[in-house]
Design a protein around this nucleic acid. Structure first.
Length: 290
DNA sequence: AACACGCTCAACCGCTTTCCC
DNA sequence: AGGGAAAGCGGTTGAGCGTGT
């Protein structure tokens, strides 16, 4: 017999979250930060398991989540990364900080997979099609080499990302600097949650690290939607700052350009429609930074 | 207007990995 | 070192909604 499900207890609620539950969860995380998931149900009175709380936060309530249609650039990035990393949605999501792994997974399963299948059977007149057909057109030997290169590439990119995260976590970077995130497109199912988070974000951006304790911080004001990302990295391999640099979300060039250079190259490589052909060029350049 | 069908996406399940004692 | 608990992750499900007939 396997371990019983964590939610397999009497009185544990399942199904869609109510606005009241969302507010209770956000209020708690506002005070204590994300992470101590098992402490949430007993301390908030929520009749949810810790897993459900974590999922609700990371997939829905977390500030900075972008909802709505994926852009062409995001689509291409997902296709590239999926071909590189496989179905490692959390790793892929780390390159798209405003998207959740669940969103990307859903988008892939419901749309991209079908689109690619269609393109494979039909023509390849889209960027994705050209990417895929370009991949297929290379010889077997080249393909095997590319495959190995892909694996190496992914390893290097991920190990670099991980080392950057360590630096970020251990450093005393003012997390409020992350509030340079462009105006958030975050949207919740309820106006209440949206307002709550707006209030929270405006509060923490002026006083980073110190959560505004009262749940009365459900503010109706239309404060700036600039957010503290201190709580938004729970499912990110990379820190938000390098990610934003990677994805061109910053206008300015941050200091420490040695770390930035390979990532910029990675970005151009990932978004390059002739990835198969230019991969080696990238690798040559990338190894100069290793 | 009513029904059937397909699509989307939030949420759950179960397995794996990581952490802590 | 080993075992248990918690967290993380990917696959899957199903309710709700939109669209076509």
């Amino acid at each position: 017999m396997g371990r019983p499900p964590c939610c397999d207890k009497d009185g544990v609620k399942k199904g869609p979250w109510t606005p009241e539950e969302d507010i209770a969860l956000v209020s708690y995380i506002q005070q204590h930060g994300p992470g101590n998931w098992r402490g949430i149900p007993p301390n908030t009175g929520l009749r949810r398991c810790s897993k459900s709380c974590r999922l609700r936060w990371t997939n829905y309530l977390r500030p900075g989540i972008k909802r709505g249609n994926f852009t062409d650039q995001e689509e291409k990035l997902i296709v590239h990364l999926q071909s590189l990393l496989g179905n490692r949605w959390a790793a892929i999501a780390s390159y798209l900080p405003e998207r959740t792994d669940n969103d990307i997974k859903n988008y892939w399963n419901t749309y991209l997979k079908k689109k690619l299948r269609k393109l494979e059977s039909g023509g390849a007149d889209s960027p994705i099609g050209s990417l895929q057909s370009g991949r297929r057109s290379i010889s077997k030997g080249q393909w095997e080499r590319c495959l190995q290169t892909d694996v190496d590439m992914a390893k290097r990119a991920l190990s670099q990302a991980l080392s950057m995260e360590k630096e970020w976590k251990s450093s005393s970077i003012d997390r409020s600097s992350l509030s340079s995130r462009p105006s958030s497109t975050y949207a919740s199912s309820t106006e209440n949650i949206s307002r709550l988070l707006k209030g929270w974000m405006s509060g923490t951006s002026s006083n980073p690290g110190v959560a505004q304790a009262s749940s009365a911080s459900v503010r109706a004001d239309t404060a700036s939607s600039q957010g503290s990302a201190s709580a938004s990295s729970s499912n990110c391999i990379m820190s938000p700052e390098p990610l934003e640099s990677l994805l061109g979300l910053h206008d300015s060039t941050p200091e420490g350009s040695e770390a930035q250079a390979p990532l910029s190259l990675l970005e151009s490589w990932l978004l390059d429609e002739d990835a198969g052909q230019k991969q080696e060029n990238f690798l040559d350049m990338a190894t100069d930074y290793m």
